[in-house]
Design a protein around this nucleic acid. Sequence first.
RNA 1: GGAGAGAUGGCCGAGCGGCUGAAGGCGCUCCCCUGCUAAGGGAGUAUGGGUGAAUAGCCCAUCGAGGGUUCGAAUCCCUCUCUCUCCGCCA
Length: 437
Amino acid sequence: MLDVSLLRRDPEGVAVVLGRRGYVFDLGRWQVLEQERKQAQVAVEQLRARRHMVAKAVGQAKAQWEAAGEQIPTLLAAGEALAGQLRELEAQLAAAQEAIEGFLLSLPNLPHASVPDGPDDSANVVCRLWGKERIQSWENLSWRPQDHVALGALHGGMDFESAARMAGARFVVLQGYMARLHRALGQFMLDLHVTRHGYQECYVPYLLQEQALVGTGQLPRFAADLFALLGEKTRYLLPTGEVPLTNLVAEQLLDQGRLPLRLAALTPCFRAEAGAAGRDTRGMIRQHQFDKVELVQITTQELGLAALEELTGHAEVILQALELPYRVVSLCTGDLGFASAKTYDLEVWLPGQGMYREISSCSWFEAYQARRLKARYRQPAGGSVPVHTLNGSGVAVGRALVALLENHQQQDGSILIPAALQPYLGGIQILEPAGKA
RNA sequence: GGAGAGAUGGCCGAGCGGCUGAAGGCGCUCCCCUGCUAAGGGAGUAUGGGUGAAUAGCCCAUCGAGGGUUCGAAUCCCUCUCUCUCCGCCA
């Protein structure tokens, strides 16, 4: 949610900045809503003030019965009339406020000044590249690298058919060392962030109520991306660990000394992928269910932007440790997520497909989520202000598995295990295709 | 699932339908005192909103949430949510 006082002070300026991300701010509608709200509010408050006076006068008249007792019936009648008027005006005010609330929730965040302008992902800016030599070595190869689906078939243990039979499209069953490799990746990542980057490990609910998803910005706009559960009370499957982790500070007033909070969790994620019909149907790239290590930081206004660089670096360490080439991309205004002020995507190189694919997305929400969540901190000078929230994948487990298979394959289809991961696989250094060893 | 108790400010905790935005304590801030520390004395200390040039006034809202009764509700009634205790069941 945007800062309401900023909207009141400078709606034209807000319209310009929102225009950078291709969002058309309805200035006229905002002004009408605001005027209606203001009118209704002033009227209601004046009436309430009069009601207070009357009610107080009744009390005083009763206290001095002999002197003022005869005024009571008049006062009661006046009060009754006021109460009737108030009822009507309060209904008007409530309607006006509801309209404003809905309007505010529908507005995306303002892109930060450092975000490049552009209409879509073609205008994203590559900030840096890691593992260039590795990518070049793929180009000089005498044999053709396979994609992870082919490698999965070769090794066994990656079963899309069984998954489809029981769950439908966009699911997978992993078995044997594929399943173990998947588990090892998640454990390795979470351990690294906890022991080396100072994140607090969290275990969180996977079923969430509407309010939590409104807080982080998935609702009300993106309900179609979520899985909702049937039942007497609507709950949603988490689309990302961001939602429970960030909601940890909802409705909280934190001491500045406790910030920044660094939180991490390994959770499944469930996405309806409603807008992606027919896209990435092959393999494990785009699934309805996947695991992800999520990093969340809760910090101050001063530290917000720097925390984005730090958090992105934390995600990069994972890819470096797994020896996976990647690039860091600054999303342009047109590609920026709804709630984000600035986002870096980490795109891993997939030699089997000859392209980069997103494996992590690190975003700084400024105070946008915090206002929705009512998450504030107390400043030493006094006063409380909304926190800044950030999150990033550190990283997506399924896609990491894909990247690992494709990047560490040998000509015979065997997979070399990076040194950092070996302790999580009982010291195994190489996975041989089924039937070969 | 059954029976009962509860939800008040940063925290703990009092609160008769009107004079309670809310006693008292803790914490915090400032001042005084003591050579340092500890102890002591004094003052202050919620949030959001409206109207203001204003971080000045004045006004409104907020005592878990939402309804209701009333001229007037933290206080009475109803519904919901959550917490606690006991019983049952369970990984």
